[in-house]
Design a protein around this nucleic acid. Sequence first.
DNA 1: CGTTAGAATTGATGTTCATCAATCATCGAC
DNA 2: GTCGATGATTGATGAACATCAATTCTAACG
Lengths: 228, 228
Amino acid sequence: MRVAERPEIARLPLFREMQEEQRERIFSGSFLQVFPPQLTLFELGQHPDFLHVLVDGLAELYATSAGRDTTMRIVEPVTSFILAAVVTDMPYLMSARTLTASRILLVPAALVREVVKQDCALMQATMRELALAYRDMVRALTDMKLRQSAERLGNLVLDQERRQGGTGRAQLRAEKRLIASLLGMTPENLSRAFGVLGQHGLEIDGATVRIADRAALEAFSRPDPVRD
Amino acid sequence: MRVAERPEIARLPLFREMQEEQRERIFSGSFLQVFPPQLTLFELGQHPDFLHVLVDGLAELYATSAGRDTTMRIVEPVTSFILAAVVTDMPYLMSARTLTASRILLVPAALVREVVKQDCALMQATMRELALAYRDMVRALTDMKLRQSAERLGNLVLDQERRQGGTGRAQLRAEKRLIASLLGMTPENLSRAFGVLGQHGLEIDGATVRIADRAALEAFSRPDPVRD
DNA sequence: CGTTAGAATTGATGTTCATCAATCATCGAC
DNA sequence: GTCGATGATTGATGAACATCAATTCTAACG
Protein backbone atom coordinates (compact mmCIF):
# COMPACT_ATOMS: atom_id res chain seq x y z
CA MET A 1 0.00 0.00 0.00
CA ARG A 2 1.30 3.42 -0.92
CA VAL A 3 2.24 5.80 1.83
CA ALA A 4 0.40 8.93 0.71
CA GLU A 5 -3.11 7.97 1.74
CA ARG A 6 -2.32 6.14 4.94
CA PRO A 7 -2.79 9.07 7.31
CA GLU A 8 -6.17 9.80 5.82
CA ILE A 9 -7.33 6.22 6.17
CA ALA A 10 -5.88 5.98 9.65
CA ARG A 11 -8.02 8.96 10.61
CA LEU A 12 -11.24 7.15 9.71
CA PRO A 13 -13.47 6.54 12.72
CA LEU A 14 -13.13 2.84 12.07
CA PHE A 15 -9.33 2.75 12.39
CA ARG A 16 -8.63 5.83 14.45
CA GLU A 17 -8.57 4.42 17.95
CA MET A 18 -6.93 1.08 17.41
CA GLN A 19 -3.43 0.08 18.47
CA GLU A 20 -0.77 1.34 16.11
CA GLU A 21 0.71 -2.12 15.90
CA GLN A 22 -2.55 -3.74 14.85
CA ARG A 23 -3.24 -0.97 12.40
CA GLU A 24 0.10 -1.74 10.87
CA ARG A 25 -0.99 -5.35 10.44
CA ILE A 26 -4.19 -4.26 8.74
CA PHE A 27 -2.43 -1.90 6.38
CA SER A 28 0.44 -4.15 5.49
CA GLY A 29 -1.97 -6.95 4.64
CA SER A 30 -4.08 -4.69 2.43
CA PHE A 31 -3.56 -3.26 -0.98
CA LEU A 32 -4.75 -0.20 -2.79
CA GLN A 33 -6.16 -0.84 -6.20
CA VAL A 34 -7.27 1.42 -9.02
CA PHE A 35 -10.49 0.60 -10.82
CA PRO A 36 -11.94 2.05 -14.02
CA PRO A 37 -15.44 3.52 -14.09
CA GLN A 38 -18.48 1.24 -14.24
CA LEU A 39 -16.61 -1.79 -13.01
CA THR A 40 -18.40 -4.33 -10.87
CA LEU A 41 -16.51 -4.77 -7.61
CA PHE A 42 -18.56 -7.64 -6.24
CA GLU A 43 -22.00 -9.11 -6.62
CA LEU A 44 -24.86 -9.93 -4.37
CA GLY A 45 -24.58 -13.48 -3.06
CA GLN A 46 -20.81 -13.66 -3.22
CA HIS A 47 -18.73 -14.49 -0.25
CA PRO A 48 -17.04 -11.37 1.14
CA ASP A 49 -13.32 -11.43 0.45
CA PHE A 50 -12.41 -7.86 1.32
CA LEU A 51 -13.49 -4.94 3.39
CA HIS A 52 -13.52 -2.05 0.95
CA VAL A 53 -12.40 1.48 1.70
CA LEU A 54 -13.12 3.98 -1.02
CA VAL A 55 -10.13 6.32 -1.04
CA ASP A 56 -10.88 8.24 -4.16
CA GLY A 57 -13.64 8.27 -6.75
CA LEU A 58 -17.29 7.32 -6.41
CA ALA A 59 -19.00 3.96 -5.95
CA GLU A 60 -22.50 2.61 -5.87
CA LEU A 61 -24.06 -0.13 -3.79
CA TYR A 62 -27.12 -1.59 -5.42
CA ALA A 63 -29.47 -4.50 -5.01
CA THR A 64 -31.17 -6.62 -7.63
CA SER A 65 -34.13 -8.94 -7.44
CA ALA A 66 -36.12 -10.58 -10.17
CA GLY A 67 -34.73 -8.43 -12.93
CA ARG A 68 -35.28 -5.11 -11.17
CA ASP A 69 -32.53 -3.19 -9.46
CA THR A 70 -32.19 -0.26 -7.12
CA THR A 71 -29.43 1.92 -5.75
CA MET A 72 -28.94 1.41 -2.04
CA ARG A 73 -26.15 3.83 -1.32
CA ILE A 74 -23.77 6.14 -3.10
CA VAL A 75 -20.35 5.86 -1.47
CA GLU A 76 -18.14 8.93 -1.33
CA PRO A 77 -14.52 8.96 -0.21
CA VAL A 78 -13.17 8.32 2.33
CA THR A 79 -15.52 5.63 3.59
CA SER A 80 -15.48 1.92 4.25
CA PHE A 81 -18.29 -0.23 3.01
CA ILE A 82 -19.84 -3.70 3.41
CA LEU A 83 -18.53 -4.05 6.93
CA ALA A 84 -21.56 -6.09 8.01
CA ALA A 85 -20.98 -8.84 5.46
CA VAL A 86 -17.31 -8.97 6.44
CA VAL A 87 -17.76 -9.30 10.19
CA THR A 88 -20.57 -11.85 9.90
CA ASP A 89 -18.80 -13.68 7.08
CA MET A 90 -22.10 -13.96 5.25
CA PRO A 91 -22.86 -13.40 1.55
CA TYR A 92 -23.17 -9.84 0.28
CA LEU A 93 -26.73 -8.54 0.19
CA MET A 94 -25.74 -5.85 -2.27
CA SER A 95 -23.60 -5.55 -5.36
CA ALA A 96 -21.10 -2.77 -5.88
CA ARG A 97 -19.68 -0.96 -8.85
CA THR A 98 -17.49 2.04 -9.42
CA LEU A 99 -19.15 5.08 -10.92
CA THR A 100 -16.00 6.99 -11.73
CA ALA A 101 -12.40 5.82 -11.77
CA SER A 102 -11.70 4.93 -8.15
CA ARG A 103 -8.97 3.91 -5.80
CA ILE A 104 -10.05 1.40 -3.24
CA LEU A 105 -8.21 -0.10 -0.31
CA LEU A 106 -8.89 -3.81 -0.12
CA VAL A 107 -8.53 -5.28 3.35
CA PRO A 108 -8.77 -9.07 3.41
CA ALA A 109 -11.96 -10.01 5.24
CA ALA A 110 -10.30 -12.74 7.28
CA LEU A 111 -7.69 -10.27 8.45
CA VAL A 112 -10.38 -7.83 9.55
CA ARG A 113 -12.16 -10.52 11.52
CA GLU A 114 -8.92 -11.63 13.14
CA VAL A 115 -7.68 -8.19 14.13
CA VAL A 116 -11.13 -7.17 15.35
CA LYS A 117 -10.99 -10.02 17.84
CA GLN A 118 -7.61 -8.92 19.13
CA ASP A 119 -8.06 -5.19 19.29
CA CYS A 120 -10.89 -4.03 21.46
CA ALA A 121 -10.71 -0.47 20.21
CA LEU A 122 -11.20 -1.64 16.65
CA MET A 123 -14.05 -3.84 17.76
CA GLN A 124 -15.69 -0.95 19.50
CA ALA A 125 -15.30 1.23 16.42
CA THR A 126 -16.76 -1.55 14.29
CA MET A 127 -19.68 -1.88 16.65
CA ARG A 128 -20.32 1.82 16.50
CA GLU A 129 -20.00 1.90 12.72
CA LEU A 130 -22.53 -0.91 12.39
CA ALA A 131 -24.93 0.77 14.80
CA LEU A 132 -24.76 3.98 12.80
CA ALA A 133 -25.22 2.10 9.54
CA TYR A 134 -28.24 0.37 11.03
CA ARG A 135 -29.71 3.68 12.02
CA ASP A 136 -29.19 5.01 8.52
CA MET A 137 -31.11 2.07 7.16
CA VAL A 138 -33.93 2.66 9.62
CA ARG A 139 -34.12 6.21 8.35
CA ALA A 140 -34.11 5.10 4.73
CA LEU A 141 -36.85 2.56 5.32
CA THR A 142 -39.14 4.93 7.18
CA ASP A 143 -38.47 7.53 4.50
CA MET A 144 -39.57 5.02 1.90
CA LYS A 145 -42.63 3.87 3.81
CA LEU A 146 -43.94 7.17 5.09
CA ARG A 147 -43.13 9.81 2.53
CA GLN A 148 -44.03 10.25 -1.06
CA SER A 149 -41.48 10.89 -3.75
CA ALA A 150 -41.33 14.69 -3.84
CA GLU A 151 -41.05 14.81 -0.05
CA ARG A 152 -38.18 12.34 -0.14
CA LEU A 153 -36.40 14.48 -2.67
CA GLY A 154 -37.01 17.61 -0.63
CA ASN A 155 -35.43 16.01 2.40
CA LEU A 156 -32.50 14.73 0.38
CA VAL A 157 -31.87 18.25 -0.85
CA LEU A 158 -32.11 19.69 2.65
CA ASP A 159 -29.74 17.01 3.90
CA GLN A 160 -27.20 17.61 1.14
CA GLU A 161 -27.29 21.32 1.66
CA ARG A 162 -26.61 20.88 5.36
CA ARG A 163 -23.68 18.57 4.73
CA GLN A 164 -22.24 20.97 2.19
CA GLY A 165 -22.06 23.80 4.66
CA GLY A 166 -25.57 25.17 4.97
CA THR A 167 -24.95 27.93 2.46
CA GLY A 168 -28.29 27.54 0.75
CA ARG A 169 -26.67 25.79 -2.18
CA ALA A 170 -25.84 22.19 -2.86
CA GLN A 171 -24.31 20.15 -5.63
CA LEU A 172 -25.88 16.87 -6.65
CA ARG A 173 -22.86 14.64 -6.72
CA ALA A 174 -24.30 11.79 -8.77
CA GLU A 175 -26.31 11.51 -11.94
CA LYS A 176 -29.98 12.20 -11.53
CA ARG A 177 -30.94 8.73 -12.61
CA LEU A 178 -28.90 7.40 -9.70
CA ILE A 179 -30.50 9.79 -7.27
CA ALA A 180 -33.87 8.70 -8.60
CA SER A 181 -33.02 5.06 -7.98
CA LEU A 182 -31.68 5.86 -4.52
CA LEU A 183 -34.96 7.54 -3.69
CA GLY A 184 -36.96 4.67 -5.12
CA MET A 185 -38.44 6.39 -8.13
CA THR A 186 -37.94 6.65 -11.87
CA PRO A 187 -35.84 9.37 -13.51
CA GLU A 188 -39.01 10.73 -15.09
CA ASN A 189 -40.61 11.19 -11.72
CA LEU A 190 -37.49 12.75 -10.29
CA SER A 191 -37.80 15.46 -12.93
CA ARG A 192 -41.42 15.99 -12.01
CA ALA A 193 -40.57 16.00 -8.32
CA PHE A 194 -38.04 18.76 -8.94
CA GLY A 195 -40.81 20.58 -10.75
CA VAL A 196 -43.03 20.29 -7.69
CA LEU A 197 -40.26 21.51 -5.39
CA GLY A 198 -39.82 24.46 -7.72
CA GLN A 199 -43.14 25.68 -6.36
CA HIS A 200 -41.92 25.19 -2.80
CA GLY A 201 -38.82 27.28 -2.52
CA LEU A 202 -36.28 25.32 -4.52
CA GLU A 203 -34.38 26.56 -7.55
CA ILE A 204 -32.56 24.07 -9.69
CA ASP A 205 -30.00 24.54 -12.40
CA GLY A 206 -28.40 21.39 -13.72
CA ALA A 207 -26.65 19.68 -10.83
CA THR A 208 -26.85 22.74 -8.59
CA VAL A 209 -29.81 23.35 -6.32
CA ARG A 210 -30.48 26.52 -4.40
CA ILE A 211 -32.83 26.83 -1.47
CA ALA A 212 -34.57 30.11 -2.23
CA ASP A 213 -37.20 29.76 0.48
CA ARG A 214 -36.19 27.38 3.22
CA ALA A 215 -39.39 27.79 5.20
CA ALA A 216 -41.48 26.82 2.18
CA LEU A 217 -39.27 23.85 1.34
CA GLU A 218 -39.39 22.61 4.91
CA ALA A 219 -43.12 23.11 5.15
CA PHE A 220 -43.49 20.91 2.10
CA SER A 221 -40.85 18.28 2.90
CA ARG A 222 -41.55 18.07 6.62
CA PRO A 223 -38.06 17.10 7.74
CA ASP A 224 -38.07 15.22 11.00
CA PRO A 225 -35.97 16.87 13.71
CA VAL A 226 -34.94 13.47 15.03
CA ARG A 227 -34.35 11.62 11.83
CA ASP A 228 -33.17 14.22 9.39
CA MET B 1 -34.98 -9.88 38.70
CA ARG B 2 -36.73 -13.18 39.22
CA VAL B 3 -34.78 -16.38 38.87
CA ALA B 4 -37.07 -18.31 36.55
CA GLU B 5 -36.26 -16.60 33.27
CA ARG B 6 -32.57 -16.03 33.82
CA PRO B 7 -31.32 -19.15 32.07
CA GLU B 8 -33.39 -18.36 29.03
CA ILE B 9 -32.08 -14.83 28.81
CA ALA B 10 -28.53 -15.98 29.47
CA ARG B 11 -28.86 -18.28 26.45
CA LEU B 12 -29.56 -15.38 24.11
CA PRO B 13 -26.81 -14.90 21.52
CA LEU B 14 -26.21 -11.47 22.96
CA PHE B 15 -25.40 -12.68 26.47
CA ARG B 16 -24.34 -16.26 25.86
CA GLU B 17 -20.59 -15.92 25.52
CA MET B 18 -19.82 -13.25 28.06
CA GLN B 19 -18.05 -13.74 31.38
CA GLU B 20 -20.32 -15.10 34.06
CA GLU B 21 -19.23 -12.37 36.42
CA GLN B 22 -20.12 -9.57 34.03
CA ARG B 23 -23.39 -11.24 33.17
CA GLU B 24 -24.15 -11.20 36.84
CA ARG B 25 -23.54 -7.45 36.88
CA ILE B 26 -25.92 -6.97 33.97
CA PHE B 27 -28.64 -9.05 35.50
CA SER B 28 -28.40 -7.67 38.99
CA GLY B 29 -28.64 -4.14 37.65
CA SER B 30 -31.71 -4.94 35.56
CA PHE B 31 -35.30 -5.50 36.41
CA LEU B 32 -38.11 -7.42 34.91
CA GLN B 33 -41.31 -5.47 34.51
CA VAL B 34 -44.82 -6.45 33.50
CA PHE B 35 -46.66 -4.21 31.06
CA PRO B 36 -50.33 -4.22 30.04
CA PRO B 37 -51.32 -4.44 26.35
CA GLN B 38 -51.10 -1.36 24.14
CA LEU B 39 -48.74 0.48 26.42
CA THR B 40 -46.16 2.82 24.95
CA LEU B 41 -42.71 1.75 26.13
CA PHE B 42 -40.80 4.64 24.65
CA GLU B 43 -41.11 7.16 21.90
CA LEU B 44 -39.09 8.24 18.93
CA GLY B 45 -36.70 11.03 19.84
CA GLN B 46 -36.31 10.03 23.47
CA HIS B 47 -32.98 9.34 24.99
CA PRO B 48 -32.46 5.59 25.43
CA ASP B 49 -32.62 4.65 29.09
CA PHE B 50 -32.81 0.88 28.81
CA LEU B 51 -31.93 -1.98 26.58
CA HIS B 52 -35.16 -3.96 26.33
CA VAL B 53 -35.42 -7.73 26.28
CA LEU B 54 -38.88 -9.04 25.55
CA VAL B 55 -39.24 -12.12 27.74
CA ASP B 56 -42.89 -12.80 27.24
CA GLY B 57 -45.69 -11.26 25.19
CA LEU B 58 -45.53 -9.33 21.94
CA ALA B 59 -44.27 -5.86 21.12
CA GLU B 60 -44.21 -3.52 18.16
CA LEU B 61 -41.59 -1.08 16.98
CA TYR B 62 -43.04 1.65 14.84
CA ALA B 63 -42.04 4.94 13.31
CA THR B 64 -44.06 8.10 12.84
CA SER B 65 -43.55 11.10 10.65
CA ALA B 66 -45.81 13.96 9.81
CA GLY B 67 -48.94 12.28 11.15
CA ARG B 68 -48.40 8.98 9.37
CA ASP B 69 -47.05 5.87 11.08
CA THR B 70 -45.74 2.49 10.11
CA THR B 71 -44.79 -0.73 11.82
CA MET B 72 -41.08 -1.40 11.59
CA ARG B 73 -40.80 -4.69 13.41
CA ILE B 74 -42.89 -7.08 15.42
CA VAL B 75 -40.84 -8.35 18.36
CA GLU B 76 -41.39 -11.88 19.59
CA PRO B 77 -39.88 -13.37 22.74
CA VAL B 78 -37.12 -13.87 23.63
CA THR B 79 -35.37 -11.00 21.85
CA SER B 80 -33.57 -7.82 22.73
CA PHE B 81 -34.43 -4.64 20.93
CA ILE B 82 -33.14 -1.12 20.30
CA LEU B 83 -29.55 -2.16 20.82
CA ALA B 84 -28.27 0.39 18.29
CA ALA B 85 -29.71 3.38 20.13
CA VAL B 86 -28.27 2.07 23.41
CA VAL B 87 -24.71 1.52 22.23
CA THR B 88 -24.53 4.82 20.35
CA ASP B 89 -26.36 6.68 23.10
CA MET B 90 -28.42 8.46 20.47
CA PRO B 91 -32.17 9.17 20.42
CA TYR B 92 -34.54 6.38 19.48
CA LEU B 93 -35.51 6.35 15.81
CA MET B 94 -38.56 4.25 16.57
CA SER B 95 -41.27 4.11 19.17
CA ALA B 96 -42.32 0.92 20.91
CA ARG B 97 -45.50 -0.39 22.41
CA THR B 98 -46.70 -3.67 23.80
CA LEU B 99 -49.30 -5.51 21.76
CA THR B 100 -50.26 -8.03 24.41
CA ALA B 101 -49.45 -8.11 28.12
CA SER B 102 -45.69 -8.48 28.21
CA ARG B 103 -42.81 -9.02 30.53
CA ILE B 104 -39.73 -7.08 29.61
CA LEU B 105 -36.26 -7.08 31.09
CA LEU B 106 -35.00 -3.54 31.37
CA VAL B 107 -31.22 -3.24 31.35
CA PRO B 108 -29.98 0.28 32.10
CA ALA B 109 -28.38 1.66 28.96
CA ALA B 110 -25.37 3.08 30.78
CA LEU B 111 -24.73 -0.33 32.33
CA VAL B 112 -24.83 -1.97 28.92
CA ARG B 113 -22.34 0.51 27.52
CA GLU B 114 -20.05 0.06 30.49
CA VAL B 115 -20.04 -3.71 30.53
CA VAL B 116 -19.67 -3.87 26.75
CA LYS B 117 -16.41 -1.99 27.09
CA GLN B 118 -15.10 -4.39 29.70
CA ASP B 119 -16.21 -7.68 28.26
CA CYS B 120 -14.91 -8.41 24.81
CA ALA B 121 -17.18 -11.40 24.30
CA LEU B 122 -20.23 -9.22 24.94
CA MET B 123 -18.85 -6.62 22.60
CA GLN B 124 -18.36 -9.18 19.93
CA ALA B 125 -21.89 -10.48 20.39
CA THR B 126 -23.20 -6.92 20.22
CA MET B 127 -21.23 -6.31 17.05
CA ARG B 128 -22.65 -9.44 15.50
CA GLU B 129 -26.20 -8.61 16.61
CA LEU B 130 -25.93 -5.17 15.04
CA ALA B 131 -24.52 -6.57 11.82
CA LEU B 132 -27.41 -9.02 11.57
CA ALA B 133 -29.93 -6.28 12.35
CA TYR B 134 -28.37 -4.14 9.66
CA ARG B 135 -28.67 -6.95 7.17
CA ASP B 136 -32.32 -7.40 8.09
CA MET B 137 -32.90 -3.76 7.36
CA VAL B 138 -31.15 -4.04 4.00
CA ARG B 139 -33.50 -6.89 3.18
CA ALA B 140 -36.54 -4.93 4.29
CA LEU B 141 -35.55 -1.89 2.24
CA THR B 142 -34.85 -3.83 -0.94
CA ASP B 143 -38.12 -5.69 -0.41
CA MET B 144 -39.90 -2.38 -0.20
CA LYS B 145 -38.16 -0.87 -3.19
CA LEU B 146 -38.17 -3.79 -5.58
CA ARG B 147 -41.29 -5.78 -4.93
CA GLN B 148 -44.93 -4.96 -5.10
CA SER B 149 -47.32 -5.63 -2.30
CA ALA B 150 -48.61 -9.11 -3.15
CA GLU B 151 -45.04 -10.31 -3.73
CA ARG B 152 -43.96 -8.93 -0.38
CA LEU B 153 -46.80 -10.77 1.28
CA GLY B 154 -45.95 -13.99 -0.54
CA ASN B 155 -42.39 -13.82 0.70
CA LEU B 156 -43.49 -13.06 4.22
CA VAL B 157 -45.69 -16.12 4.17
CA LEU B 158 -42.89 -18.29 2.78
CA ASP B 159 -40.55 -16.92 5.44
CA GLN B 160 -43.00 -17.53 8.28
CA GLU B 161 -43.70 -21.04 7.10
CA ARG B 162 -39.99 -21.82 7.02
CA ARG B 163 -39.48 -20.47 10.53
CA GLN B 164 -42.41 -22.43 11.80
CA GLY B 165 -40.98 -25.72 10.68
CA GLY B 166 -41.61 -25.94 6.97
CA THR B 167 -44.76 -28.00 7.39
CA GLY B 168 -46.68 -26.13 4.73
CA ARG B 169 -48.65 -24.27 7.36
CA ALA B 170 -48.03 -21.08 9.24
CA GLN B 171 -49.78 -18.97 11.82
CA LEU B 172 -49.91 -15.23 11.44
CA ARG B 173 -48.88 -14.12 14.88
CA ALA B 174 -50.09 -10.54 14.70
CA GLU B 175 -53.25 -8.82 13.60
CA LYS B 176 -53.55 -8.40 9.88
CA ARG B 177 -53.59 -4.64 10.12
CA LEU B 178 -50.17 -4.84 11.74
CA ILE B 179 -48.85 -7.16 9.07
CA ALA B 180 -50.19 -4.74 6.49
CA SER B 181 -48.35 -1.87 8.11
CA LEU B 182 -45.18 -3.92 8.41
CA LEU B 183 -45.36 -4.65 4.69
CA GLY B 184 -46.05 -1.02 3.91
CA MET B 185 -49.62 -1.34 2.69
CA THR B 186 -53.15 -0.73 3.91
CA PRO B 187 -55.27 -3.43 5.56
CA GLU B 188 -57.61 -3.25 2.57
CA ASN B 189 -54.81 -4.04 0.20
CA LEU B 190 -53.55 -6.85 2.41
CA SER B 191 -56.92 -8.52 1.98
CA ARG B 192 -56.72 -8.09 -1.74
CA ALA B 193 -53.13 -9.34 -1.77
CA PHE B 194 -54.27 -12.50 0.02
CA GLY B 195 -56.90 -12.79 -2.67
CA VAL B 196 -54.23 -12.63 -5.34
CA LEU B 197 -52.09 -15.24 -3.57
CA GLY B 198 -55.17 -17.45 -3.41
CA GLN B 199 -54.71 -17.85 -7.16
CA HIS B 200 -51.05 -18.74 -6.68
CA GLY B 201 -51.04 -21.71 -4.37
CA LEU B 202 -51.97 -20.19 -1.02
CA GLU B 203 -54.95 -21.11 1.11
CA ILE B 204 -55.93 -18.86 3.94
CA ASP B 205 -58.27 -19.40 6.83
CA GLY B 206 -58.31 -16.66 9.45
CA ALA B 207 -54.82 -16.44 10.90
CA THR B 208 -53.72 -19.75 9.41
CA VAL B 209 -52.17 -19.96 5.98
CA ARG B 210 -51.46 -23.14 4.08
CA ILE B 211 -49.13 -23.47 1.15
CA ALA B 212 -51.11 -25.69 -1.18
CA ASP B 213 -48.80 -25.27 -4.15
CA ARG B 214 -45.34 -24.15 -3.20
CA ALA B 215 -44.05 -24.02 -6.75
CA ALA B 216 -46.84 -21.68 -7.78
CA LEU B 217 -46.38 -19.46 -4.75
CA GLU B 218 -42.66 -19.23 -5.31
CA ALA B 219 -43.08 -18.56 -9.01
CA PHE B 220 -45.29 -15.65 -8.10
CA SER B 221 -43.35 -14.29 -5.11
CA ARG B 222 -39.87 -14.87 -6.54
CA PRO B 223 -38.05 -15.39 -3.24
CA ASP B 224 -34.41 -14.52 -3.49
CA PRO B 225 -32.11 -17.40 -2.55
CA VAL B 226 -29.65 -14.98 -0.97
CA ARG B 227 -32.00 -12.62 0.76
CA ASP B 228 -34.97 -14.73 1.71
C1' DC C 1 -76.84 -16.52 24.51
C1' DG C 2 -77.59 -11.59 22.26
C1' DT C 3 -74.94 -7.19 22.15
C1' DT C 4 -71.42 -4.52 20.54
C1' DA C 5 -66.89 -2.80 19.34
C1' DG C 6 -63.08 -3.60 16.63
C1' DA C 7 -61.11 -6.07 12.81
C1' DA C 8 -61.45 -7.93 8.21
C1' DT C 9 -63.34 -7.84 3.84
C1' DT C 10 -65.43 -6.02 -0.48
C1' DG C 11 -66.57 -2.61 -3.87
C1' DA C 12 -66.24 2.11 -5.94
C1' DT C 13 -63.32 5.87 -6.76
C1' DG C 14 -59.15 8.85 -6.71
C1' DT C 15 -54.09 9.58 -6.23
C1' DT C 16 -49.49 8.48 -6.92
C1' DC C 17 -46.33 6.70 -9.54
C1' DA C 18 -44.49 3.79 -13.55
C1' DT C 19 -44.30 3.15 -18.28
C1' DC C 20 -44.04 4.45 -22.99
C1' DA C 21 -42.89 7.73 -26.44
C1' DA C 22 -40.96 11.78 -28.04
C1' DT C 23 -38.03 15.73 -27.65
C1' DC C 24 -34.40 18.37 -25.72
C1' DA C 25 -29.90 19.05 -23.55
C1' DT C 26 -25.05 17.83 -22.70
C1' DC C 27 -20.60 16.31 -23.68
C1' DG C 28 -16.86 13.84 -25.63
C1' DA C 29 -14.77 12.24 -30.11
C1' DC C 30 -13.26 13.33 -34.31
C1' DG D 1 -17.25 23.15 -35.07
C1' DT D 2 -20.56 18.49 -36.31
C1' DC D 3 -21.89 14.12 -34.97
C1' DG D 4 -23.57 10.62 -32.01
C1' DA D 5 -24.51 8.74 -27.59
C1' DT D 6 -26.41 9.24 -23.28
C1' DG D 7 -28.91 11.55 -19.85
C1' DA D 8 -32.74 14.77 -18.69
C1' DT D 9 -37.17 16.40 -19.47
C1' DT D 10 -42.08 16.57 -20.92
C1' DG D 11 -46.54 14.69 -22.12
C1' DA D 12 -49.95 10.85 -22.51
C1' DT D 13 -51.52 6.67 -20.67
C1' DG D 14 -51.94 2.77 -17.54
C1' DA D 15 -50.99 0.02 -13.30
C1' DA D 16 -50.55 -0.20 -8.41
C1' DC D 17 -52.10 1.31 -4.46
C1' DA D 18 -54.75 4.44 -1.09
C1' DT D 19 -58.97 6.17 0.38
C1' DC D 20 -63.76 6.14 1.38
C1' DA D 21 -67.92 3.70 2.35
C1' DA D 22 -70.47 -0.26 3.40
C1' DT D 23 -70.96 -4.78 5.11
C1' DT D 24 -69.50 -9.00 7.27
C1' DC D 25 -66.90 -11.39 10.60
C1' DT D 26 -65.03 -12.19 15.26
C1' DA D 27 -64.65 -12.18 19.98
C1' DA D 28 -65.16 -10.20 24.53
C1' DC D 29 -68.74 -9.21 27.90
C1' DG D 30 -72.89 -8.58 30.23
